[in-house]
Design a protein around this nucleic acid. Structure first.
Length: 578
RNA sequence: CGGGGCGUAGCGCAGUUUGGUAGCGCAUCGGUUUUGGGAACCGAGGGCCGCUGGUUCGAGUCCAGUCGCCCCGACCA
């Protein structure tokens, strides 16, 4: 491709509303432009990158036995009424009416549509298993879109749905997708981890998230330093050492005046105890009722664990008014002693200690010498806090690291939730009607592009993995006015394209500095610089964008020399990801 | 939805305090010189100052309303 024939509107300056590096670079490199909040146009270069990603996804999905279809973005409200999600999905689901006053929505996901399709088509176990997927635009009316392609309202997603006759088949389908995802993200050239994840509101027995490792990720992962264990911190269990012998209750409970001391740090410092001797009392709203959760002062309540333990649908921090009503005290002075009418759950770790400090449910007052067994009417004890870097690995007991990740894929075992709601059944060998067992599997295609950039960039611009880069090779004739340079560049360009290597030739009459700067910004993994200085010595220069390493190749045998060097660069990429 | 902020040329911004001819840099167009890391000079074009209403002789600037956008929290690929 000649650069003079492709529209790449680069920006020297970063648009003011871009916050994260991928958003800045996507705009600066002329890959995307914003249309409105959370909605973008993909320009030629951005679209090429998306197509590269999509192609790999397609190849691996097809290889795993899935079949591509394309479902509509506009979906009838009726189907969502049937599944029950019309009421439960919330405002993320963008709803509207047509001229006949019929209800519709923009598809945020396609369980309803695909299940309705399959129920009308699949009659017999002989037609199973079936796995259907699509690569399609989704719309979720996010409360706050941000970070460019990382969290748009409209985004491109690959979503697949498997249908099986039994649990064993569903497990095999799940595993096939898990394996396909592993191959996809490996081929794409990102460092990633598959982590155990909470199934969330979708339900089902288990799920894994595929996380691109990057500091700017919105999720935190607990990764074992020794074994293969990796989990989202939402999910990661806390495994405690064996409990120490029950401790004798100490001194009787005593009130202590703590004027204006609301936070754990303030209280601990004022009373003169360590933060872990303070009881953090968090009131949550679980499906409309208040619940008190106790954790050590230096720990964090894990709302996902609370939700799962309670079997609730929605768990959130209680609003301040509710807390004040329940405790009769201002925020910051809640405590479990004498707290009436609210179930009280303690994190398991608290049972290892005694002599705690907690709020007294009275303004400016805390209690000392509290013993949970003696002084508190506990409803239950469970693992309710988030794992920390000091905790042992739940699987092997080794140490864990907490790292940040960007969720780019998620595989779920759905079970029969949708097939039962929508009556998608089949007849088994005995002629019995049974619900299909489903799985669903998503990859955020446009988010993968952003995640690639978050993981691979430097001060000059993007450093795209060869599989994702719109062009793998960028050829830069130092001056197109030097006939010899231009001819050399064109010859190499044509030869590489013949080899099936996507190559961009900067044939513009620009100054060398402009070309070098833009090439680094656009981030093709390999650059070729052809100039009169080099040609005079019989060489062309190549540059590995990832390492910055430059090398001179003999101009006479440039094609073969380039291919050999390219193999080294590709190997370097693979090695860097291991 | 709550909290904070911003809307002035394609992009980045100044001007708003104290009302009085709408500016700067980059980009764009023409020209000359330049050509191995985002060139220099000369010249030119480009503005419903987000929108609506109000105050005023006069509003980018003051007042009211409204729309859009961004950042921080709860959602998710």
């Amino acid at each position: 491709m000649l650069q003079s024939h492709i529209y790449i509107p680069t920006l020297k300056e970063t648009p003011a509303d871009a916050e994260v590096i991928s958003h800045k670079l996507l705009l600066r490199s002329g890959m995307i432009r914003k249309v409105t909040s959370g909605i973008y146009t993909y320009l030629p270069l951005g679209l090429r990158a998306l197509e590269k990603i999509s192609r790999i996804v397609r190849e691996e999905m097809n290889a795993a036995g899935a079949q591509e279809i394309l479902m509509p973005m506009v979906q009838p409200g009726d189907l969502w009424q049937e599944s029950g999600r019309w009421e439960h999905y919330g405002k993320e689901l963008l709803r509207f009416k047509d001229r006949h006053d019929r209800h519709y929505c923009l598809g945020p996901t396609h369980e309803e549509v695909v299940t309705a399709l399959v129920r009308d088509e699949i009659r017999s176990y002989r037609q199973l298993p079936l796995n259907l997927y699509q690569i399609q635009t989704k719309f979720r009316d996010e409360i706050r879109p941000r970070f460019g392609l990382m969290r748009g309202r409209e985004f491109i997603m690959k979503d697949a749905y498997s249908f099986d006759r039994d649990e064993a088949g569903a497990d095999a389908s799940y595993q096939a997708m898990y394996d396909a995802y592993t191959r996809i993200f490996t081929r794409l050239g990102v460092r990633f981890r598959a982590v155990a994840a909470d199934t969330g509101s979708i339900g089902g027995s288990f799920s894994h998230e595929f996380m691109v490792l990057a500091e700017t990720g919105e999720d935190t992962l607990a990764v074992c330093r020794r074994c293969a264990y990796a989990a989202n911190v939402e999910k990661a269990e806390v495994r405690l050492p064996a409990p120490t012998a029950p401790q004798a209750a100490g001194a009787p409970v005593a009130a202590v005046s703590t004027p204006g001391m609301r936070t754990v740090e303030e209280v601990a410092g004022y009373v003169g105890v360590a933060p872990h001797q303070v009881l953090k009392t968090v009131l949550v709203d679980a499906d409309g009722s208040l619940v008190a959760v106790l954790v050590r002062g230096d720990r964090e309540v894990n709302l996902v664990k609370v939700k799962n333990h309670l079997g609730a649908t929605v768990v959130d921090l209680a609003v301040p008014e509710a807390v004040e009503r329940a405790t009769g005290a201002p925020l910051g002075f809640a405590g479990p002693v004498g707290l009436r009418g609210v179930p009280i759950y303690a994190d398991q770790e608290l049972m290892h200690g005694t002599d705690y400090v907690c709020g007294a449910n009275v303004a400016d007052t805390h209690l000392q010498h509290v013993d949970l067994l003696r002084d508190v009417a506990l409803t239950g004890v469970a693992d309710l806090r988030s794992i920390t870097a000091d905790d042992p690995c739940p699987a092997c007991g080794g140490g864990v690291d907490l790292v940040r990740g960007i969720e780019v894929g998620h595989v779920f075992k759905l079970g029969t939730k949708y097939s039962e709601a929508l009556h998608a059944t089949f007849l088994d060998e005995t002629g019995r009607e049974r619900p299909l067992i489903m799985g669903c599997y998503g990859i955020g295609v446009s988010r993968v592009l952003a995640a690639c950039i978050e993981q691979h960039h430097d001060a000059a611009g993007m450093i795209l993995p060869p599989a994702v880069a719109p062009f793998e090779v960028h050829i830069l004739p130092v001056s197109v006015r030097e006939q010899a340079s231009l001819e050399m560049a064109e010859a190499l360009h044509d030869a590489l394209n013949q080899e099936g290597i996507d190559t961009l030739l900067d044939d513009r009459d620009e100054r060398p500095g402009v070309k070098f700067a833009e090439a680094d910004l656009l981030g093709a993994p390999m650059q070729v610089i052809v100039g009169s200085k080099g040609l005079a010595r019989g060489v062309v220069e190549v540059k590995d964008r990832r390492t910055g390493e430059r090398r001179e190749l003999p101009a006479e045998t440039a094609n073969a020399a380039f291919l050999a060097w390219r193999a080294e660069v590709l190997e370097g990429w693979c090695a860097s990801l291991r």
